[in-house]
């Protein structure tokens, strides 16, 4: 059996004159979690739809477990669990009835279906609300039920398309706890999101997509290597340092860039470790800081570096 569970090879899709996805390629290895990030309209959902067989690519190929994804191929569909961006549950059916419906769609029945319903309800912490209708659920609980519906048939590849939209922090944590359990069990995940901290928390591999094109496909660690500055140091003084100090600061080891604003210096560092040396140098110059703070670069910064625009543009 191949180590690759999902292969996306130069896939393109256009809607009229607009090219939504342009020669996108990436792979996911078994048990890996892939974060798919990009701003609105970048092509994430179109890519997900093609992986699920809901859209037919104009060009390129997609395969799951070596089998090409062709619309209507039930064998491939059974390998995938889809958590769509929109809530795909019936408000008028109880949580358990919803799960029974989606389980039945994947061929589950009888005792197996009941067992799986119970298991996923426990996994998403909804076991005590199984008989309730989602119309009375909070947004977070509905999202968890949405995820549970995709887990019933124990898919080899779980695709989560922005699964935490409109969810409170507590529910978001509950969702992440569930996903981390799945990850530990060896389930492969695709996670698309605007929230960088979510992707950073889960992803082994990150595909950055913009204007329908892949602009980066690397591990988070490798992506950070692309940044000219890995960390930022902000230092406040009681007296503003002179221009000579600012110029000299720019020559210190690990310092990438220095900006002076009132009594505050903003210093971009090649690595967070260089922060201590910079502070010692300032003290040695007779400029002890009254306050300082460090910040690690994040995926938002990486996206800005790679595309020149913000993720929320």
């Amino acid at each position: 059996m191949s180590d690759v569970i999902l292969g996306v090879n130069r896939v393109s899709k256009s809607f009229g004159d607009r090219c939504a996805v342009d020669a996108v390629s990436f792979q996911i290895k078994r048990g890996q979690t892939l974060g798919l990030i990009g701003p609105n309209g970048a092509g994430k959902s179109t890519t997900v739809s093609m992986i699920c067989g809901l859209l037919r690519p104009d060009h390129g190929e997609i395969s799951i477990n070596g089998q090409p994804v062709v619309g209507g191929d039930n064998t491939v569909k059974k390998m995938i669990g889809l958590v769509p961006q929109d809530l795909a549950i019936y408000d008028e059916l109880s949580a358990r009835e919803n799960l029974k419906l989606f389980g039945a769609l994947y061929g589950l029945k009888g005792a197996v279906l009941k067992t799986r319903c119970d298991a996923v309800l426990v996994l998403v912490n909804l076991e005590d609300r199984a008989a309730d209708k989602p119309s009375g659920f909070s947004g977070g609980m509905k999202r968890r039920l949405n995820i549970a519906a995709a887990l019933l048939h124990e898919p080899q590849l779980l695709i989560l398309d922005e699964p935490t939209v409109g969810v409170d922090p507590q529910s978001r944590n509950a969702i992440f706890d569930s996903l981390e359990i799945l990850k530990d069990r060896g389930c492969s995940l695709i996670y698309t999101s605007h929230y960088m901290e979510e992707v950073e928390r889960l992803a082994d591999q990150i595909v950055v997509i913009d204007h329908g094109r892949v602009v980066a496909d690397e591990s988070p660690a490798m992506l950070y290597q692309r940044l000219p500055a890995q960390a930022a140091l902000t230092v406040d003084f009681s007296v503003a340092p002179g221009a000579d100090i600012v110029a000299a600061m720019g020559l210190q080891p690990g310092v990438k860039c220095v900006q002076m604003q009132d009594h505050q210096l903003k210093i971009a560092l090649a690595h967070a470790d260089h922060g201590l040396g910079v502070l010692q140098w300032l003290v040695a110059q007779g400029l002890p800081p009254v306050h300082y703070a460090t910040a690690k670069a994040n995926l938002e910064d990486i996206f800005l570096t790679l595309t020149g625009r913000s993720l929320r543009d």
């Binding site: 809901l54 039930n74 059974k78 929109d86």
Partner: peptide
């Protein structure tokens, strides 16, 4: 409109 349709089509059932 709500995405339920695509969710159903993503399952191993035909149109």
């Amino acid at each position: 409109r709500l995405g339920l349709w695509n969710r159903l089509l993503a399952a191993p059932v035909s149109l």
